[in-house]
Amino acid sequence: MTKTTLPTMLSFSAPDLREQIEALPEGTALIGISTDGRAIAVDLNAECPHVLVCTSSGGGSTTMLRSLTAQFLHQGAHALVLDSKRISHLWARGLPTVTHRGNTAGIHDALVGLGEELARRLDLADTELDAAPRLIVSMDSANSTLHHLTRYWEKFRSNDDPHTSPAVAALEAVLWAGRAARVHVILDGTPFTSVLGAAPHELFGTVILARVSATTWQRLAPLTGPAPKPNRLTGRGHVIQDGEAHETQAIWMTDADVVTWLTDPDDPTA
């Protein structure tokens, strides 16, 4: 296989890239370009329509969440952005089709509401569901967020309440049944089976890894062989789909890129 020399950064403003993104069918978003020259994309209509992003510090996970979420918003989806650091996704604040939550109580209530929305959508007729906007759940720093949600529930639950946080239970329900309800999760972290109840490769059809250890690679991509040598370039990682790993340069979209594109899509400078 001939390898393509990739740029050190794949900016949203690169020639023809925006046009390529806007030409994608609904439910598809571009992750980046692989070293064999192929466009690597996420397909929400696939069998397992969720995305797991795992990188070490500086590996670009926040940028990947922002890029993918923005593309689906541009196609008409709505989004729930769970930003436990409160500053990682400032672009999401104020956009009409985005709900942004940062503190633990707000994230808890949003996920409980998500569970109710999932149940409502699962009861809709096919024609009603097709008319409903896709819902993207974008969760940054999932490991710490899930830990805080568990601690939060332990603090407030009564003896008659279930031991599992209803917020965590709602997220797990979406991961299993979301495809049937047009609800999709883009999650940044390394979820453990003790929290979400299944191995990551069973829940996520697309896994994006960058600068991870061999142990993390083996746990999150067990069917793809040994971990490759990490690449230190910003946005460079591997996308695992259908048991294959594609070295990929991911799209770089800034907060300003996203806000301008979503609020003024006819602006050619967006």
Rank of each mutant, 00 (worst) to 15 (best):
S56N: 08
S56C: 01
S56D: 08
S56V: 00
S56G: 14
S56Y: 00
S56R: 03
S56M: 02
S57P: 08
S57D: 02
S57G: 13
G58P: 15
G58V: 13
G58Y: 14
G58N: 13
G58Q: 14
G59W: 10
G59Y: 09
G59D: 11
G60D: 13
G60M: 14
G60R: 12
S61D: 13
S61H: 14
S61M: 13
S61V: 10
S61P: 08
T62S: 15
T62A: 11
T62F: 04
T62G: 14
T62Q: 11
T62V: 12
T62L: 02
T63V: 15
T63W: 06
M64Y: 08
M64R: 14
L65E: 04
L65H: 12
L65W: 08
L65G: 15
L65M: 12
R66M: 10
R66V: 06
R66I: 05
S67R: 09
L68I: 11
L68V: 07
L68K: 08
L68D: 02
L68R: 08
T69M: 06
T69D: 03
T69H: 03
T69K: 04
A70R: 01
A70C: 02
A70F: 03
A70I: 04
A70E: 03
Q71C: 02
Q71L: 03
Q71E: 09
Q71M: 06
F72T: 01
L73V: 06
L73I: 03
H74S: 10
H74V: 00
H74R: 09
Q75R: 05
Q75G: 07
Q75F: 04
Q75L: 07
Q75H: 08
G76P: 04
G76A: 05
G76N: 04
G76Y: 03
A77M: 04
A77P: 09
A77Q: 04
H78N: 11
H78R: 13
A79T: 07
A79D: 05
L80W: 13
L80A: 12
L80G: 08
L80M: 13
L80Q: 10
V81D: 05
V81H: 11
V81L: 12
L82K: 05
L82Q: 05
D83G: 02
D83T: 06
D83W: 02
D83P: 09
D83I: 01
S84E: 12
S84P: 15
S84M: 13
K85M: 12
K85R: 15
K85P: 07
R86P: 00
I87L: 10
I87G: 00
I87D: 09
S88T: 02
S88H: 05
S88Q: 06
S88G: 13
S88W: 00
H89Q: 07
H89I: 03
H89G: 02
L90G: 07
W91M: 04
W91C: 01
W91V: 00
A92L: 06
A92V: 09
A92N: 02
R93K: 11
R93S: 08
R93G: 05
G94V: 09
L95I: 13
L95G: 09
P96K: 09
T97V: 02
T97I: 00
T97K: 08
V98P: 07
V98E: 04
V98R: 02
V98Q: 01
V98G: 04
T99E: 15
T99L: 14
T99K: 14
H100N: 06
H100S: 10
H100F: 11
R101M: 09
R101K: 15
R101A: 15
R101Y: 04
